[in-house]
């Protein structure tokens, strides 16, 4: 299929527009058209499939399933389920309460809460399209890894008393879960895919456009000198900058691309991206409703440290 796309891009740029192959602008445009179509097709297919799969893992089911698991196994399963259970930051509070109420340990609950926003299918597709399967694979593995390890550590720290008291007093009612028909699952998945595409479409254009421009025009500059391999503080600094910021995962990809194109190592750029998506000020404000400051600070601290660690690991593994 990619070959058809290449043919199509060539047709548009060199035939219809009559631009000359080999010219900077023409090749950048060719690259742009090819990549935009490729990523949009990938996004449509993957978001649709992921949404259908997700409809089989509603949070109510995940909660029942995790209730019988203890730490370690629980943390690993929670981190993996975090990928397939649909999640939006506005559901973080009811999820947190619901998990704890059913007896799921705090550390396991946090593993889920970390992996769910960190491993994002839109980011995955864009990394796959722009950087290849190696970076995309490491992204998933490290997201799940961070969720497991941070959850285990947080579980060991005995932080239960720093959960707001009212959380333990809430009684969760019996859920009358309506089992959707397959048709309903497909319709929902399709609607959701459209929603996401409308939301991130612009970012795909910006991301790929930035990449296309940078490939041809921007020289490696001072960023590489100060945030390159020579500076061991670059990774923690990137995380420190990323934590208060919030953007959806698609919005951070153009930044990742611009940074790597300017000579910042991929681990440093991905650490920034994960810090932006996994931890943010708005999320802290939402979670403050169920976590006392001490727990909230420890949660952010441990996750930030895990991201720094993964950043170094990436820089060491991918050269």
């Amino acid at each position: 299929m990619p070959d058809f796309l290449k043919l199509f891009a060539d047709l548009v740029v060199y035939r219809w527009l009559g631009l000359h192959a080999g010219a900077h602008l023409a090749d950048a445009l060719d690259f742009f058209i090819y990549d935009v179509i490729k990523i949009l097709l990938l996004l449509t297919a993957i978001i649709f499939v992921v949404s259908v799969i997700r409809s089989f893992f509603p949070p109510e089911k995940t909660r029942q399933f995790l209730g019988r698991k203890r730490s370690w196994v629980g943390n690993i399963l929670a981190a993996l389920l975090g990928i397939v259970t649909p999640f939006c930051s506005c559901s973080a509070v009811p999820l947190f309460i619901g998990f704890l109420e059913s007896g799921i340990p705090l550390g396991v609950t946090l593993s889920f809460l970390i992996s769910s926003p960190t491993v994002n299918e839109v980011a995955l597709v864009m990394l796959l399209g722009l950087f290849g399967w190696k970076v995309a694979g490491l992204y998933i593995a490290s997201g799940v890894g961070i969720a497991i390890v941070a959850g285990i550590i947080l579980g060991r720290l005995k932080l239960e008393r720093y959960v707001e008291e009212y959380v333990y007093q809430i009684k969760v009612g019996a859920a009358d879960y309506v089992r959707p028909t397959f048709r309903q699952r497909a319709t929902d998945a399709w609607t959701y895919t459209g929603e996401i595409l409308r939301k991130v479409g612009l970012w795909v254009l910006v991301g790929v456009g930035a990449g296309a421009l940078i490939h041809g025009y921007v020289p490696v500059d001072w960023l590489a000198k100060y945030a390159g391999r020579g500076n061991p503080l670059a990774v923690p600094l990137a995380v420190l900058i990323g934590v208060p910021l919030y953007s959806n995962a698609a919005g951070t990809i153009p930044i990742v691309q611009a940074l790597t194109a300017k000579g910042v190592p991929i681990g440093t750029a991905l650490a920034l991206m994960m810090a932006v998506t996994a931890l943010s000020l708005p999320e802290a404000i939402i979670l403050r409703r169920v976590m006392k400051p001490r727990l909230l600070a420890t949660y952010f601290g441990v996750v930030a440290l895990a991201i720094v660690f993964v950043g170094y690991l990436f820089n060491a593994v991918i050269r």
Binding site: P58, P59, E60, R63, P86, C88, C90, S91, V93, P94, L95, I97, G98, E101, Y166, I170, K171, V172, G173, A174, A175, D176, R289
Partner: peptide, 14 residues
């Protein structure tokens, strides 16, 4: 109100 929301057994809002 979170207490009331949870009484319906709902974990995913809206």
């Amino acid at each position: 109100d979170m207490k009331e929301i949870m009484s319906f057994g709902v974990l995913g809002t809206p």
